[in-house]
Amino acid sequence: MISTGMGSWSPLVFLICVAFISVVVQIIRSLGEGGFRKEEDKAEAFFSGGRLLIKNRVMDVYWGFFDAMGRYYGWMKRMHNGIVNDYVYWFVLLVTVVIGVVILL
């Protein structure tokens, strides 16, 4: 049980409660049917229009996010271009900023 100045957290109590709640949920779960009668194609993934031609390719994930943040990502990807000279320029920028901050403030 730890307590920072402003809050507290006890993992053991949490786990005891989770254990108890799991028992309750398991009871609810066992009220339901466990399996299913195996029929032809019943357990195929639903894809309206017949057989699934392309199996899952989970590559273009989070399209919505990248589309919404398009300008930010365009800018970021241009900055991370992998050229060592640019890395050094960033370092020079860092040194300048740090010296400026430390000396002026």
Partner: peptide, 13 residues
């Protein structure tokens, strides 16, 4: 102060 900035920048790198 200058030495501090240089050392800190190097370690941040």
């Amino acid at each position: 102060k200058v030495a501090l900035s240089l050392i800190v920048s190097a370690i941040l790198l």
